[in-house]
Simulated assay, not measured.
Amino acid sequence: MFDLIVIGGGVLGTFHAYHALEAGLKVALIEKDKAPQDATTRNFGQVVPSGMNSKWQNYGRESLSIYKNLQTQFDISVRQNGTIYLASDEEEMQLIEELHDINIQNGYTSEMLTKQTCLHHYPGLKSSYAKGGLYFPDEVTVEPRIMIHRLLDFLKTEKNLEIHTGKTVKSCEHTGNTVNVDTACGSTLKGSKVIICNGREFKILYPALFAQSDLQVSKLQMMQTKPQGTGYSLPGSVLTGLSIRRYEAFSECPSFSVIKSREAQDSPEKKWGIHILFKQAKDGSVILGDSHQYAEAKDIDDLGYDLDMEIDDYMVRKAKEIFRLPNYEIAHRWYGMYSQCKTKDLFQTTINDHIHIVTGIGGKGMTGSAGYAKENIQNLFNLTT
């Protein structure tokens, strides 16, 4: 009998398990695949509270502390190498200056960088693009295809997390004070509470509930270059003008709505939801992207399984306008899918006092999950802080 069973081994589910274990609870985690392989492993690995609105920045800042603390115990690939937002015109400069002021008020460290400082610290940055930057020194990156696997191994070996992989949960039935969690392979786990962190999987558990929700799924295309070779180093998370015009943190800036109203509505950036990000992986390659295409949760299959090369080619062209990398030879292309709500910041519902669903965290997952899950576990189990 477990105090908590977590369904879903992505970053949101895993951090719910982590905080429950830290509270001394007996926890099991069930993951349908051999290992997590959806949105948690198919992203940039950028932990950027700076891009979030004030509410979620608080969760993100707590996440930073959690990531850094875990890294002191076990190498989960955390690197504190900061985040830069590069402005390409006067409007974007105005927005980063306003966000800098907001973060001063919030007590979150950021630094305005001149054009020359940006050109000095970010090799290959084109002078024709950069007007200045806003830098967040406390932010970190992780390797998304490494971090979650190492974290689960750590929780299994050091924290006694019981992990069941390759098992699809087909039903959760509550009887008395027990929830029976049945898997398709015939096994049953019993727990006092269940948290379902199902990512974009809406067809197995409670499909009617998700079909009637305001959840939608975003499909993102990303690429990874071949290693850039010795001597080239692009530090931290690099976000550009299109990110400044997109990220929710900037929507709190006084000038944001007016600046957004002046944007062309028929551009490729609008059509495909493109904003250009860069992050150098440990092997020297550079991950770049990304795009956003949307479908309702019930219509997820409409997004298809193809990579649109027109989108990829456009993103590479835009990236070349910003950075002169030693090479733009693409070694890998892929897409990721994550769920998000259209009217709320995440999807959270209780089937009864014992079964809880938390999903639809959208692009906030890698940054916000650790901090949010801590609060959610405290609330669900009536724990004192």
Rank of each mutant, 00 (worst) to 15 (best):
Arg333Tyr: 13
Lys364Trp: 03
Ser50Met: 06
Val286Met: 14
Gly304Tyr: 05
Asp302Pro: 01
Ile274Pro: 12
Val258Glu: 15
Gln94Phe: 06
Asn53Met: 09
Glu321Asn: 15
Ser237Arg: 05
Val47Phe: 12
Met93Cys: 10
Lys68Cys: 10
Ile204Asp: 00
Ala295Asp: 00
Glu269Phe: 12
Ser255Glu: 08
Lys190Thr: 06
Ala281Thr: 02
Met93Val: 06
Gly82Ile: 05
Ile204Ser: 03
Ser237Val: 04
His275Gly: 15
Gly10Glu: 04
Tyr135Phe: 14
Ser213Ile: 13
Lys282Trp: 05
Lys68Pro: 06
Gly186Ser: 12
Ser369Val: 06
Thr72Val: 03
Lys260Ser: 11
Asp214Ala: 14
Lys131Pro: 01
Pro207Lys: 15
Gly371Asp: 04
Ile274Ala: 07
Lys374Tyr: 03
Gln80Cys: 00
Asn180Arg: 13
Ser291His: 08
Tyr314His: 14
Asp89Gly: 01
Thr359His: 08
Leu383Gly: 06
Thr367Met: 06
Ile5Lys: 00
Tyr67Ser: 07
Lys271His: 12
Asp345Tyr: 03
Leu189Cys: 14
Gln265Arg: 10
Ile259Met: 13
Gly191Asp: 02
Leu25Glu: 06
Gln265Trp: 09
Ile66Ser: 02
Met366Cys: 02
Leu21Cys: 07
Met309Asn: 14
Gln73Pro: 00
Leu383Pro: 09
Leu234Tyr: 14
Ser218Arg: 06
Ala184Asp: 07
His332Gly: 04
Thr83Tyr: 07
Tyr314Asp: 10
Leu4Gly: 08
Lys279His: 11
Ser128Tyr: 06
Leu86Cys: 12
Leu209Phe: 04
Tyr294Gln: 09
Asp153Ile: 10
Lys131Val: 04
Tyr108Ser: 07
Asn69Arg: 15
Asp353Gln: 13
Gly371Glu: 07
Gln228Trp: 02
Leu189Glu: 13
Ser171His: 10
Asp33Pro: 00
His174Ala: 15
Met93His: 02
Asp301Leu: 02
Leu134Val: 11
Asp308Gly: 03
Thr117Tyr: 12
Gly362Ala: 15
Ile76Asn: 10
Thr165His: 01
Tyr232Asp: 08
Gln80Met: 02
Gln57His: 09
Thr41Tyr: 07
Asp299Gly: 01
Gln80Gly: 07
Gln57Lys: 08
Ser251Val: 05
His354Lys: 09
Trp56Tyr: 10
Glu263Thr: 01
Gln116Lys: 13
Ala17Trp: 00
Leu4Met: 11
Asp302Met: 07
Ser243Leu: 05
Gly336Ala: 08
Tyr18Trp: 08
Leu29Cys: 02
Val358Trp: 11
His332Cys: 03
His174Gln: 12
Leu95His: 09
Ala130Ile: 14
Tyr129Arg: 02
Pro137Ser: 13
Ser187Thr: 11
Ile84Asn: 00
